[in-house]
Design a protein around this nucleic acid. Structure first.
Lengths: 267, 267
DNA sequence: TCGAATTCTCGTAGGGTATACGAGAATTTG
DNA sequence: CAAATTCTCGTATACCCTACGAGAATTCGA
């Protein structure tokens, strides 16, 4: 791996793989990387979808680290290097896995029925994205800086933009708002998933982890240096459950963000 | 490493290391893990701060992967295992590095001068945090689910809470709002840093990366399935620079989030 | 029917990672 | 000048990804 998920190879091949099940290129060329002339030569024992599916399954069940090329090959009952017949590299496989699960979100396409209120439409995006992260906790460990530009990712972007278009904000502001919302929603959902992952890996709840550090407050905490925290503490501002606090702050932040965007409408 | 940064060891030792330069425990016990009785025995050639400083430096210059125990030891001119005299594990070293840079943010403490407007105070937090991520890009690769509970982290939390206290929102809502703000600010700053990191590692700007994928639009993009994206495109809603788009959306999202929180005040 | 061409299969080898263990070196104390 | 104490660090283990190239399977053309 270069450093971590670059997608360096040839972009053409990568795109062909990502869009392999959306036969758009009407040209007679087989677009390569997905369809072969099926003539001479040994028959393949797998196909790309098999590998992607198995990768997702393994990462779901045993964590992203278990979805190594070696582990995956063992799972599929082939030699490690055989996988490279179907997928050019581990990075590209990860791209395929990510776009696959992005596409599994149940978001209405153009023309399909959806809530009337734009805020409720954004809620749908938020809930579907959170659910996706919960189903596939390993997503929280994957960089999204250079996302797989496949059908799954594009469908998500399309839906969110379509939800905001009704606000009549102007093209540039609509796009900016959509970026801000995805930054918030995707990041918060990712943190939620990462939290569960850590709990699973350490076999310790985050509440228990904090509890273990309780003598911090007696031994090291200096009340004079932390008057605000002390005030909140005495006013019962801290919730007992880390998970609930995170969920509440997520909902609160999203609602306030949408409040703010709504106000721009009347500007 | 267990899986990724857990902080499993004994919490007492970990806390003693984190707070090693804040001599609070007035008891005669040397709190262990940081101070020794300095009697018999070979003299140490380093101390904890040396190791932490060198770790930060190396991660800044060559990336987090280069700051391995082996690489760090070479840098310091000692054997790899020597480092374990000063630091119990790689995970704990990372905690120390993180708390160190968290503490480097220039945030006014209690009683120190600061802007009057609460929004400007939040801006200070935002800008200082962004600058920190830019100085130490590797922070974007470190999990914050179980942060180092040291002086640096606590100072940041204290400052943000103190900025929000003036709003008079009630203890619980104040805390929830602070969590929402850190989620947004820290995540966005982290994404910004990660973006630069990827550009550095691949020696390719993100704009160039997108440009390489331009024939997506001709070859695979289906206008009928993506009317909203198409509309935004035709209305010049897309910016040419990825970096600028991210910066704009960051500022926009933070402003709208604070708008929304401000409205709650009058409720 | 039988090369030739094509395509898939996968063992080996190389350069990384963190850290448990235990022997040896350095220093002070009695 | 031993004994006690503390720091130093080589070795060994078990992973990771993937370049390379030899071998196996299959079909096509003559």
């Amino acid at each position: 791996m270069s450093e971590r998920r670059s997608g360096e190879g040839q972009p053409d091949k990568t795109l062909a793989l990502l869009w392999r099940n959306h036969r758009q290129p009407a040209a007679d060329e087989p677009a390569d990387g997905t369809a072969r002339k099926r003539g001479a030569g040994r028959r393949p024992s797998l196909n790309v979808d098999d590998v992607v599916r198995a990768g997702i399954q393994l990462a779901d069940d045993q964590g992203l680290a278990a979805a190594s090329m070696g582990g995956l090959a063992k799972e599929l009952g082939v030699g490690t290097m055989t996988l490279y017949t179907y997928v050019p590299s581990k990075d590209e496989l990860l791209d395929l896995m990510v776009d696959q699960v992005l596409g599994e979100r149940d978001l209405p396409g153009p023309g399909e029925s959806r809530p009337e209120d734009w805020r409720e439409q954004v809620e749908v995006y938020s809930e579907q994205t959170r659910a996706m992260f919960q189903r596939h906790l390993w997503l929280s460990q994957v960089s999204t800086i250079r996302p797989p530009v496949g059908p799954g990712m594009l469908a998500g972007r399309e839906y969110l933009l379509s939800a905001l278009l009704g606000l009549g904000l102007g093209a540039l502001e609509t796009n900016t708002a959509a970026l801000a919302i995805t930054t918030y929603v995707d990041s918060a959902a990712s943190l939620e998933a990462e939290s569960r992952l850590v709990e699973r890996a350490t076999r310790q709840t985050n509440d228990a982890w904090w509890y273990e550090r309780n003598d911090l407050w007696e031994t090291y905490f200096d009340v004079d240096r932390h008057p605000a925290m002390t005030a909140i503490w005495h006013a019962d501002g801290y919730q007992s459950s880390t998970r609930e606090a995170a969920a509440d702050s997520y909902r609160y932040g999203l609602d306030r963000l949408l409040d703010g965007i709504e106000t721009q409408q009347a500007r």
